[in-house]
Design a protein around this nucleic acid. Sequence first.
DNA 1: AAGGCGGGGTT
DNA 2: AACCCAGCCTT
Length: 345
Amino acid sequence: MIFSNLLIQWYLQNKRDLPWRNTTNPYPIWLSEIMLQQTRVAQGMPYFLSFTTAFPTVFDLAKANEEQVLKLWQGLGYYSRARNLHKTAQHIAFDLSGVFPGTYNDLLKLKGVGEYTAAAIASFSYNEVVPVVDGNVFRVLSRYFDMDTDIAQASAKKKFAALAFELMPKDNPATFNQAIMEFGALQCVPKSPNCGICVFNESCAALQKNKVDQLPVKSKKLKVRNRYFNYLVLEDETGNTIIQKRTDKGIWHNLYEFPLIETDATEDFDSVVAMVQKDFGNQYEIISMLEYNEKSIIHKLSHQHLHIKFWKVSVKGTIENGIDGETLKTFPFPIVIHNFIEKDL
DNA sequence: AAGGCGGGGTT
DNA sequence: AACCCAGCCTT
């Protein structure tokens, strides 16, 4: 049987029931696609549900402020997605009268929408014949055809897109695109796929050659940088504290945090006390300091390992523009700070 | 073309 | 610990 027929047959029997699959409305489809970039369905699902509840239409999302959007996005990561999502919602609502661009090429012009996402929306919402190429597609096709193309190279995407286009039934691009990704997510998984029950186990080139575990080929390895964060949880005599917005480029842009002293390594207690005295001694009269966590929390990002200590800094009097514990919880924080506030503060 | 950008699951 | 996840943007 033809590749696409077998694939779609498998899909119709094995697909998950996902809320964004029961519609051709580009708004929820766009929302789900942004959320699922580099993110598993199980992780994105609760965010999709809370966003569609809070913002039923693109106009509702457009009318929100960025801080509300980031608060709802809190914990999902890659926060530029949320910022771009919000800007694009405003563009569609206010400049385009709420009407999504109707073609792959026009979708591609939206902030946060690249080749994959434009193809996904165009095929799922409009049945445009454009192939999606994501991590699943790289894996499925590289194995089925035994291709050792390095998927880390930019040129690889064109090659796989051309191949996927050839395989795609031109009268049903939406189902084919869903099917090949679902097949990669459920059957042709990265580690130890169960090829014994695979519908392609007589035609898969990698399986014939016993090379399934060697494909796809991916060259780039990323380097991890260690950073050392000391977060100062000031507390005045009324129990208020202060936070600041991260406005620099880099991680957690536009999220909030406690005042931060970053060092080149883990510092001992006395050194941190001295640094706090130097940076804040003029502004506040420091009564006492203590560590909330003796051992650093190691918060692992894909590209940075953050060694984090939280310090309680008790100060005399009242902090100007201090905020109370309830107000604190309304701001968007990196998840590691959010968890600290919920569990340890 | 290469690197930055989160957080969590799986092996 | 390494790898991956319905990738995109900036440099």
